[in-house]
Simulated scan of single mutants.
Amino acid sequence: MDLELSPQEKALSVKARDFCDQVLIPLELAVDEHGELPMDRRAAVRQQVRDWGFAGINHSKEDGGLGLTMLEQTVIEEQLGRVTNGLWSCVWRPPVSLKFGTEAQKRAYLQPACHGERRGCFAITEENAGSDPRQVEMSATRKGDRWVLNGEKWFVTSYNASDFIIAHAHVDGDPDKPTLFLVDKPAAGLVHLRSPKFMHNFAFDHAELRFENVELGADKVLGEIGQGFELTKDWFVEARLQIASHTVGAAIRAAEIANDYAANRVQFGRPIRDFQAIDFMLADMAVEIFAAKTMLYRVAWEIDRKLDRKLVHARASALKLYCSEMAGRVIDKALQILGGRGYMRENPVERLYRDIRVDRIWEGTSEIQRLVIAGQIRKRGFETYAGWV
């Protein structure tokens, strides 16, 4: 087994780190001050993403993307995870469900989204439907040859940076008919209720929306009637790998900052890393990152080798669970090593501490991941996680 990254993968990692250092990290304080990436800077950042060659990293060349492997995407996403305030979202990843669209839908949505000419956001969560998507109340009903959507959605990430929405609704209110619909902005009956503030700041917003008799043509159904949950599961797998990559990158940046500080901060006549209490924290941080990164790259490698889709879903849950919780532990230790300086908003570790907390919640809470994992053990046995496929 060859565990060494290829020259192409190494080059992509270096390039992504340079992009973060030169383009995204200089924007961190502005985003933290304004709560979002200022509107007057968004077009320039979008062009820089194109100029650096990171447009559409998660789609095939045939669909307008870069045709990268999952491992190549992972080395890029890990570096993007080093930035604070969700600035990694400036590097767009058109929703994976778009690849199941018709050729006309791909031309209208996926291809321009890969090029950065359009952007879509995903609307699935509701006030009473989070971890259990069968509780979705948003309905889609037929009206002649058209569809009518009614309902509300919460936590629609990057709404104010997007010009279309992929909305998850139940046809005729039937939870056995979950279906995805493409909704262009603006749309008659689409109401932006608010974009609440959260513990973290983020490049773009997280909106709450109301759909009031929003009418759509038959060509706006993405996939088949009743296929919405399956397409959403594919999106969740990709999103969970993305979160795992980001949390590993965030943990590494925090650990590097803490390690440098411990080597240079002198107390009682010695660098504080000379004290076992600090050195042991750094050792524990290193081991946790080592384990998480090993798991991350294994799962990405398995996806590229066409591992069974159900096993991928099972392992993506374990990956998201471990990496998101690992990052919380590592960044907490990093802040402790930095002391009062780590608690200052001007310090990246303070921002990472706020940023990383949501990764145990969105795209499936830690508790949901444990349910998935336990269910897989019951169905398939411990070999799912203890074996090697």
Score class of each variant (00 low, 15 high):
residue 37 L to A: 02
residue 115 H to K: 10
residue 340 G to F: 14
residue 352 L to K: 04
residue 263 A to N: 08
residue 78 E to R: 12
residue 379 K to C: 01
residue 1 M to C: 08
residue 158 S to I: 02
residue 23 V to P: 04
residue 303 I to K: 09
residue 223 G to C: 09
residue 363 E to Q: 06
residue 67 G to V: 08
residue 48 Q to Y: 07
residue 4 E to G: 07
residue 286 A to C: 14
residue 24 L to A: 04
residue 20 C to A: 11
residue 329 R to T: 02
residue 38 P to G: 09
residue 277 A to H: 11
residue 30 A to K: 05
residue 23 V to A: 09
residue 233 K to N: 05
residue 72 E to H: 08
residue 319 L to T: 02
residue 282 L to E: 07
residue 84 T to Y: 05
residue 136 V to S: 03
residue 247 T to D: 03
residue 363 E to L: 01
residue 54 F to Q: 01
residue 207 A to S: 14
residue 66 L to M: 14
residue 238 E to R: 07
residue 239 A to N: 11
residue 348 P to A: 10
residue 335 L to G: 13
residue 193 L to S: 03
residue 94 P to M: 10
residue 381 G to P: 04
residue 153 K to E: 05
residue 225 I to W: 04
residue 209 L to H: 08
residue 58 N to G: 06
residue 324 S to I: 04
residue 319 L to R: 00
residue 106 K to P: 02
residue 193 L to T: 05
residue 158 S to F: 09
residue 255 A to Y: 08
residue 86 G to S: 08
residue 72 E to A: 11
residue 355 D to G: 10
residue 2 D to E: 10
residue 152 E to I: 05
residue 331 I to R: 00
residue 103 E to L: 10
residue 261 Y to K: 05
residue 97 S to M: 15
residue 92 W to N: 11
residue 173 G to K: 05
residue 181 F to K: 00
residue 345 R to C: 12
residue 363 E to G: 00
residue 136 V to M: 04
residue 254 A to H: 08
residue 312 V to L: 09
residue 23 V to W: 06
residue 363 E to A: 09
residue 51 D to T: 12
residue 110 L to C: 11
residue 118 R to K: 14
residue 219 D to M: 02
residue 257 I to Y: 12
residue 205 D to M: 05
residue 313 H to I: 01
residue 242 Q to K: 14
residue 139 S to P: 03
residue 313 H to D: 07
residue 5 L to E: 06
residue 377 I to R: 00
residue 322 Y to W: 08
residue 344 M to G: 12
residue 307 L to E: 03
residue 346 E to F: 07
residue 116 G to Q: 09
residue 354 R to D: 15
residue 339 G to P: 08
residue 93 R to L: 11
residue 265 R to A: 14
residue 131 S to E: 15
residue 149 L to R: 07
residue 20 C to Y: 07
residue 207 A to Q: 09
residue 54 F to P: 05
residue 303 I to S: 06
residue 13 S to I: 00
residue 374 A to K: 01
residue 119 R to Y: 09
residue 125 T to E: 10
residue 322 Y to G: 00
residue 36 E to Y: 14
residue 260 D to K: 13
residue 17 R to H: 11
residue 201 N to V: 11
residue 178 P to H: 01
residue 206 H to I: 10
residue 165 I to Q: 05
residue 104 A to D: 10
residue 242 Q to F: 13
residue 241 L to M: 15
residue 159 Y to M: 07
residue 157 T to N: 00
residue 102 T to W: 06
residue 247 T to N: 06
residue 353 Y to I: 05
residue 255 A to C: 10
residue 125 T to N: 08
residue 290 F to E: 04
residue 243 I to Y: 15
residue 199 M to N: 09
residue 124 I to F: 07
residue 103 E to Y: 04
residue 322 Y to M: 01
residue 187 A to N: 01
residue 221 V to M: 02
residue 268 F to N: 10
residue 135 Q to P: 04
residue 146 R to F: 11
residue 213 N to E: 10
residue 286 A to Q: 15
residue 1 M to N: 06
residue 263 A to W: 05
residue 273 R to D: 07
residue 212 E to D: 12
residue 319 L to Q: 02
